[in-house]
Design a protein around this nucleic acid. Sequence first.
DNA 1: GACTTTTAAATGTCAGACAAATGAAAAGTT
DNA 2: AACTTTTCATTTGTCTGACATTTAAAAGTC
Lengths: 245, 245
Amino acid sequence: MQIDPNSNADLSAQIATSIRDAIMAGELIVDERLPSEAELADHFAVSRPTVREALKRLAAQSLIRTQRGASGGAFVNRLSYRDAYSQQITTSTLLLSMNEVSFETACEARYAMERACAALSAASRSADHLATMRAEIFRQGQPGLTDEAFCASDVAFHRALVDGAGNPVLSYQLAGAVEAMQPLMNMITFTARSREAIVKLHTDIANAIESQDGPAASAALTALEIETLTLAQNVFAARAKPQEE
Amino acid sequence: MQIDPNSNADLSAQIATSIRDAIMAGELIVDERLPSEAELADHFAVSRPTVREALKRLAAQSLIRTQRGASGGAFVNRLSYRDAYSQQITTSTLLLSMNEVSFETACEARYAMERACAALSAASRSADHLATMRAEIFRQGQPGLTDEAFCASDVAFHRALVDGAGNPVLSYQLAGAVEAMQPLMNMITFTARSREAIVKLHTDIANAIESQDGPAASAALTALEIETLTLAQNVFAARAKPQEE
DNA sequence: GACTTTTAAATGTCAGACAAATGAAAAGTT
DNA sequence: AACTTTTCATTTGTCTGACATTTAAAAGTC
């Protein structure tokens, strides 16, 4: 692990990159202890605060964890799904909220991935997840449900659909897309009619998965995508022209 | 923006979270300048090094950028695709290399997403990307190509396929999966026969997309997934029992 | 031997200082 | 007046040294 003295980048950034590369190359393995801050400072010929800034950069990416005390120090962290999830959500939310990505693009990506999940889900047809989907559909049909509760149930339904594929990588990828779209979805006022349409499509999806009919699930998801886009565009329109009410 | 004095978490972590929440809630907008380090130190009643550690955490996630000088400071960063890509790649690579995710799971997720892309790609049928795919297929058929060059061309082919969907969110999601699988793919020795099989499947995919036949493209990708898994499993077997050569 | 106390090592935090970059204002020049 | 140069204040980057806090192991005590 070395740094380039001629680079004009921050020393802490260089050091962080150097250590990150070592971790990603497998030179530092999971749970291995890094040298102490003082030793790292000696090694890179910098001060301890600079080393600390580098370590905090790595900690922010969940690459290391630190522990105080006698046998403490910085340890290479085993990246958990939980960590990956939250990073994915942060990234996706920012991409969407900063308008780097349009809602339409995010929606298209989300449903494309959901269709991919549905195909796998149909093949495995997990009883657990199917039961969850049915339960959420039932909840969504209850009258008197608030929009927030309806949204929450919608998320739970899609989550069950995605998790039913049994592939945690897909689950974590989609977590970001779904979560990032939530703020907008929560602004939607679901009329009785749109709820009815959504519940019907959800039922179609659940039926298709139960009968292991991937194409039918895909088709229902596509219909749901169109429905979602329409609802969202109404919100956009209302938000853009608030004086014309 | 406040921090909890009773929390036992690191001050720099609390401050970073506080600022991150403000950014994600839209209280701090893109390109807005944060208070100077000295002002933040005053505001949170901590020292400047502590504030700096917090800012470095945010910088590591590309949430802010810093600039030295008179009118410098920390600015809210517009998250670019480039940044999102590299974060995705880091996360995916670590998930795979730390055995949190099996190669099979990553492979399944990758091809599931690629099939989703192929369907979109077939619908739009971008001439650019189709030409790139054809060119890479031609290159892959050339005799005397090294394994590394074959791999690189393979990546380029899939990249064109994915980018052809015209959805940058899908592109960036897949970048991680493809990149993370690269180290293993590079270990594969491609025999003339396996190359022939791969080139044929690539041709099938390109043809299907050209004729806007999504299902055919999906089928070819599924065949390619099986081929890839088989090749990778041979590498696993060879690596696990090096004494039986 | 079991329990308590001490100690050493490590991270967390602070204070103050200087270096370096940078833009803006002031001064100087034509 | 317009342009160039210089100065200067601001801000981040880095260093030094110190102290606080946590923690596990070593030493001591019963």
